[in-house]
């Protein structure tokens, strides 16, 4: 089975990953809801995953995909911890608006 990379240049994937990554960044900047921000970060990670997979296929080297696997595991762990923190904060201040979190400054 031929991979898509035989029909399109690798550059396209790189660019797509960059675009998705940038959209993720934009989301982080754009939103105040912590959950959405998490999701945008997940989006960034997925952009990276896709890039790694593309490279892996391009080079015919599996380590890239192993790395994607690790990243997924890490992402899961992060989400677990992140949501735990979030819930804890929500329990304390009843909001997930990150702009409310500005007691520490200066």
């Amino acid at each position: 089975m031929n991979s898509i990379l035989q029909y399109i240049p690798l550059n396209y994937y790189v660019a797509l990953a960059a675009i998705l990554f940038a959209i993720g960044v934009m989301g982080v900047l754009f939103r105040r809801n912590a959950i959405i921000i998490f999701m945008c970060i997940e989006l960034m990670l997925n952009a990276v995953n896709m890039l790694l997979t593309a490279f892996s296929t391009f080079h015919g080297d599996e380590s890239g995909q192993v790395m994607v696997f690790f990243i997924m595991a890490v992402a899961a762990a992060e989400v677990a911890v992140g949501l735990a923190i979030l819930v804890m904060i929500y329990n304390n201040i009843r909001t997930v608006d990150i702009d409310e979190l500005n007691k520490l400054k200066g």
Partner: peptide, 16 residues
Amino acid sequence: NEAGMKYFLMGSFATG
């Protein structure tokens, strides 16, 4: 809590 949140959000962002 705030520290944890800030650290986490920015940390994972930087990890990206």
